[in-house]
Simulated scan of single mutants.
Amino acid sequence: MSDQTPVFIITGEQGQCKTTFLHLVLSLTVGANVRIRGVLAPGHVRDGRRSGFTLINLATGEHEELCSIDPDPRCEVHGRYYFRPEGLAFGRRALVPPDPRETDLMVIDEVGRFELQGAVWADQIDRLVTLPHPPMVWTVRRRLLDTAIQNWEIRNPVVVDVRTASVMATASDVMDAIWEWREAQTRSGLPVPPLPGGRNAFEPPVLAGAAAGASADTPTILRRRYSPEG
């Protein structure tokens, strides 16, 4: 099934809001009984420059600081970032290959030059792409796009360029892929819980943050507590 299961790759340059685009796409699927695993990595800015990243476990809503530009002798150094051992362990647990019977969508934010050098999430990605997996969504910087596709031999990439793509259309395409994944599981005899609505009648749910009083401009992707500022 994995040879035919798409990997959606949200791409753009640094600062072109790849994570924000992903965040919005997930906001439109989380209310549709979609079982999501993986990580989201919102960045932090200090004095006009990227200063670090927080990691969000999409299955649990838990979060952990991943890395920063502040020197720390306990940390792994990649580029100008110091990766905290707790953050790396947290992310690697979140990216353990999922049970296909219990996952509809796998998310990796982001796949970058450190992974292409064999670091950070490289081992987890290696395992994910060689095992049966549900549809995946990655974020990848544009200049690394072709290299990432070739490196992991992605046979069915769906490239989503944040400069021109529609969040709504992308969410609809992701939901179509999830429907196909679930139908394939049903044909193979695996039990899967139903998705609401019909196969060709995707209507995006109300953004999860709206029910909690969050601004419509900063929707939460989780039913609990995460927002870009929180």
Results as ranks from 00 to 15, higher is better:
residue 173 D to M: 08
residue 64 E to R: 12
residue 49 R to K: 14
residue 31 G to H: 14
residue 80 R to M: 11
residue 59 A to P: 05
residue 153 E to C: 00
residue 119 A to T: 05
residue 53 F to M: 05
residue 143 R to P: 10
residue 42 P to V: 09
residue 184 A to G: 06
residue 167 V to Q: 09
residue 5 T to E: 05
residue 174 V to A: 10
residue 92 R to K: 15
residue 20 T to I: 09
residue 171 A to I: 14
residue 182 R to M: 01
residue 30 V to W: 09
residue 155 R to T: 10
residue 91 G to I: 01
residue 54 T to K: 10
residue 137 V to A: 11
residue 74 R to S: 12
residue 193 P to A: 15
residue 157 P to G: 04
residue 99 D to W: 03
residue 53 F to E: 02
residue 36 I to D: 03
residue 116 L to D: 01
residue 224 R to T: 12
residue 16 Q to F: 07
residue 165 A to C: 06
residue 96 V to H: 08
residue 79 G to V: 10
residue 188 S to V: 05
residue 53 F to G: 01
residue 94 A to L: 06
residue 139 T to W: 14
residue 43 G to R: 12
residue 102 E to P: 01
residue 169 A to S: 14
residue 81 Y to Q: 05
residue 169 A to D: 15
residue 101 R to D: 08
residue 88 L to Y: 10
residue 14 Q to P: 07
residue 37 R to I: 04
residue 187 R to I: 05
residue 89 A to D: 08
residue 37 R to K: 15
residue 19 T to V: 12
residue 220 T to G: 13
residue 169 A to K: 13
residue 52 G to P: 10
residue 22 L to S: 04
residue 177 A to T: 04
residue 61 G to V: 05
residue 177 A to H: 10
residue 146 D to Y: 11
residue 205 P to M: 09
residue 104 D to T: 00
residue 63 H to A: 12
residue 35 R to Y: 11
residue 9 I to R: 01
residue 100 P to C: 03
residue 20 T to Y: 12
residue 114 F to D: 02
residue 127 R to W: 01
residue 68 S to V: 04
residue 154 I to L: 15
residue 209 G to H: 07
residue 102 E to T: 04
residue 99 D to C: 08
residue 175 M to Y: 04
residue 5 T to L: 09
residue 69 I to R: 06
